[in-house]
Design a protein around this nucleic acid. Structure first.
Lengths: 241, 241
DNA sequence: CGACACCTTGAAGAGGTTCAAGAAATGTGG
DNA sequence: CCACATTTCTTGAACCTCTTCAAGGTGTCG
C-alpha cells in the first residue's frame, strides 16, 4: 500500500536488455525513462496483484521470483507460470481491465511499475517500444503453446525434464550456472504447473537421481546429464512407429 | 499463392463488432479500411500458414473454421486452438517474425489479410486500434490460461464438458443455437486439444449420451442439460474436503 | 459401389493418483 | 539458542482413470 517512491531510470538499469527494446537513440531512451512510475517491493508470500483486482500497470521484475496462478471458487488451482528478473508480468489484465490471476512472490522481490496508459502513450511515439510490447505479448502466447504441448502430450518424466531445462536455460541467460539451480517453489507448485501431483514430482526427481541424471538435495538441483533430459523431452524412446 | 484481390472495407463488414474496436469516428473508420490488404480463400484441409513460415500478417477469419497446431519433429502433435469467424489468427508469429504453428482450415474459409506493419502504423494514429490490438493479444493469453487449467487439473468428462460449453457459447455469440452445434473437427483433433486419446473422447461422448446430457449423431451435437455440463466443469462432485 | 477416413466399443495394461506414515527442513516463541 | 510446531518432502501400497491394442461399424466421397 506504500510503494517505495524511488525515482529510477531504465537507461541505467542492468536488466535493460531483458525488458526493453535495443538499439534506441538517446532521445528515445529518454522517453522510455518516463515508463516506470515507481518501484515496489514485495515480500515473500505476498501478492503483487490478485484475481479481480483492477488492472493499471504492467510490472517488470527487477529482483525475486514469482508464480502466477489461477484459483477458481470450486477449488481448482493452476500455476500458469514462474517469472524471474527481467520478465514482464500482468499482461492478463489488459483485456478486461482487471487481473485474472494472482501473482505471488516466491522470494522477496522488487518490480518496476509501468502504468499501462503510459506504455500505450509512449508506444505511439517510440515505434521500437510499440514493437517490443507486441513481441512480449506474442512471446507469452508462444510460451503458453509450449505449456499446452507439455500438458497435452508428455508423460511425467518428460514434463519434469522440460521444466528443469527451461528453468536452467532462463537462469543461464541471466548469468547463472548451466547446470545448477535452486528451486524457488515447492513440489506442489511444480506439480500444479506440470499437471501432476506433488508425490509424482517427488518420485520423478528420485527416478532422475537413480538414473544419475540429476542430483537433488531439497531445492538444490544439479543437472548431471543435460543431453539425457533433452532426449527425454524429444521422445527418443517412445512412439516407435 | 494467388490471393483473390477483392477490395474490401471493414466499415461494411458484418463481423466488424467481432474483430474491430467499437465507437469509432468516421474519420478513424476510414483509416481502418486501409488495414485489410486483401482477402484470401483457403480450402478445407489447406493451411493458412505453417510453422517456420515468415510472418507478415495477422488474419481475421471471415468465414470458415480453423485449427492451430504444433507439430514437433519427434512426432508430438498438439492442437492449440480452434478459431471461428471474427477471431484473429497469427499472433504467435510476431515475436520471432515467423510462425510457430500451423493454421489448418477445417472447412472452406475466407480470411482478411492484415499486414502487421500496417497494423502497427495505424495503431500509432488510432488509439482505439492500438488498444484493441493489445486486448486481442491479452485475450489470447487469458484463453490459454484457461486451457492450462483444463489440461492441468480436469478429468476427461470435465474437459469435454468445458470444451462443448466453450464452443457453443462462442457460436451463440455469432447468432447460432445455444444448444446445438456441428463439430468441425474429428474426435482425434478434439482429443489432441484436450490432452486425451480419440477413444477417450468417443467414450466420454457416449457417457454423456447415456446420462442424457447430450445427444450425439456423429458430428451433430445437441446439448440437453447445459447446467449438468456446467456442474461438471465446476466440480460439484469431487474434492469433498 | 468400393475405398478410406472416422467413430465406437471391449479388454487388458500402464501411469499417475490417493491415502498413509514417517523423515527432513524450516520457522517460531520462550 | 533450543524445543516444538509446521511445512515440505519422500516412499510404499492399493486403486483408478486413461491409454493401448484390437475389431467391427458407420459415413463419405470419388
Amino acid at each position: 500500500m506504500n510503494p517505495q517512491a524511488i525515482k529510477v531510470a531504465c537507461s541505467n538499469c542492468n536488466l535493460r536488455e531483458l525488458c526493453m527494446p535495443m538499439g534506441l537513440t538517446d532521445q528515445d531512451m529518454n522517453r522510455l525513462d518516463d515508463l516506470v512510475a515507481v518501484r515496489r517491493k514485495i515480500k515473500r508470500g505476498d501478492t503483487l496483484f490478485t484475481n479481480g483486482e483492477k488492472f493499471t500497470s504492467l510490472y517488470a521484475i527487477r529482483t525475486g521470483f514469482f508464480k502466477t496462478c489461477l484459483a477458481t471458487e470450486d477449488g481448482r488451482d493452476q500455476v500458469t507460470g514462474f517469472q524471474m528478473a527481467g520478465e514482464i508480468i500482468g499482461l492478463d489484465g489488459i483485456v478486461n481491465d482487471q487481473h485474472t490471476c494472482d501473482a505471488v512472490a516466491l522470494e522477496d522481490a522488487e518490480v518496476c511499475v509501468m502504468p499501462f496508459d503510459r506504455i500505450e502513450e509512449i508506444s505511439r511515439e517510440v515505434t521500437a517500444l510499440q514493437h517490443h510490447v507486441h513481441k512480449i505479448m506474442s512471446r507469452e502466447i508462444v510460451r503458453e503453446h509450449g505449456v499446452m504441448l507439455l500438458l497435452g502430450s508428455m508423460r511425467a518424466e518428460e514434463r519434469l525434464a522440460a521444466f528443469l531445462l527451461n528453468l536452467v536455460q532462463r537462469l543461464h541467460a541471466r548469468g547463472f550456472s548451466q547446470s545448477e539451480l535452486v528451486l524457488r517453489m515447492t513440489r506442489e507448485e511444480i506439480g500444479s504447473y506440470l499437471g501432476l501431483k506433488l508425490e509424482t514430482v517427488s518420485r520423478t526427481f528420485s527416478k532422475f537421481v537413480e538414473d544419475g541424471t540429476v542430483e537433488v538435495k531439497q531445492r538444490h538441483v544439479r543437472i548431471l546429464d543435460t543431453d539425457g533430459l533433452q532426449r527425454l523431452v524429444n521422445n527418443q524412446n517412445n512412439h516407435c512407429h
